[in-house]
Design a protein around this nucleic acid. Structure first.
Lengths: 120, 120
DNA sequence: TCAGTAGTAGTAATTATTACTATTTTGAAA
DNA sequence: TTTCAAAATAGTAATAATTACTACTACTGA
């Protein structure tokens, strides 16, 4: 049930937000239960925990490899499909080639289409 | 003073660790002062706040563009010099090209030289 | 010298998260 | 179906990281 909720929420919610949605269908679910299940789901790799701002863990039901873009103006978070994967990039970096890369976490910061001019 | 301490610590310390070092030279500095100055320094962009594990903010005195590698076995954090910059990579990604990228944050997870075989 | 500002120590408060405990639910064997 | 142990839960207490508050000190410049 909680897994379904996280999967249906596309806005990278935190535990509190998931709890609010969960209460709509399970009116007396407790926050502790939400936390516990989120942790279990994360351990089973069915959801991802992500850290953007300090002290706030967010959850992401999309487990396929993807990146994020955070608009520094409106604070919205966008999902980005990686085109040439960072693993390829890693393979061209001598420092990284000596290590075994299993996964990576990449977040861009900048201005989204609505908030800023198109420019790199 | 706190800026010097953060710059001298290469291990991405958290506030508590910085506090411990600060007390060596300023025995009655308070933890609140350390937190306040770290926040000020971060606002002035003289240090960077980084989030690896949930609920723990670490600080980095190296403000030049660089990436991190975290060994999933020994949990050590390594600094990585970006070779082809991710900005270049971003420019090849149509999704990202429509946005204004100001900065990025990239962390690799995997096994370091001591903990795992060399393999990509 | 003195008033005002800024910075600090020390403590209290807040926030996100985890732990605990008594109770409820579940599910499989009898 | 009944029974009973194991697992999950609600509700609350506890913890950890961080921030806010307050009274006090130090520094500043006129």
């Amino acid at each position: 049930m909680i897994l379904e909720i996280v999967r249906s929420m596309k806005n990278h919610p935190n535990a509190e937000e998931i709890y609010e949605i969960a209460r709509l269908t399970m009116p007396n679910v407790s926050l502790g239960t939400v936390y516990r299940n989120l942790k279990l789901l994360a351990e089973e790799k069915k959801i991802k925990e992500i850290q953007f701002e300090p002290g706030k863990t967010r959850f992401d039901g999309m487990t396929s490899e993807h990146e994020h873009f955070i608009c520094t103006h409106c604070n919205r978070i966008f999902d980005i499909t990686p085109t040439p994967t960072v693993k390829y990039l890693a393979s061209t970096n001598p420092e990284v080639r000596e290590l075994t890369v299993q996964s990576y976490f990449l977040t861009y910061y900048g201005l989204c289409k609505e908030c800023g001019p198109h420019r790199i």
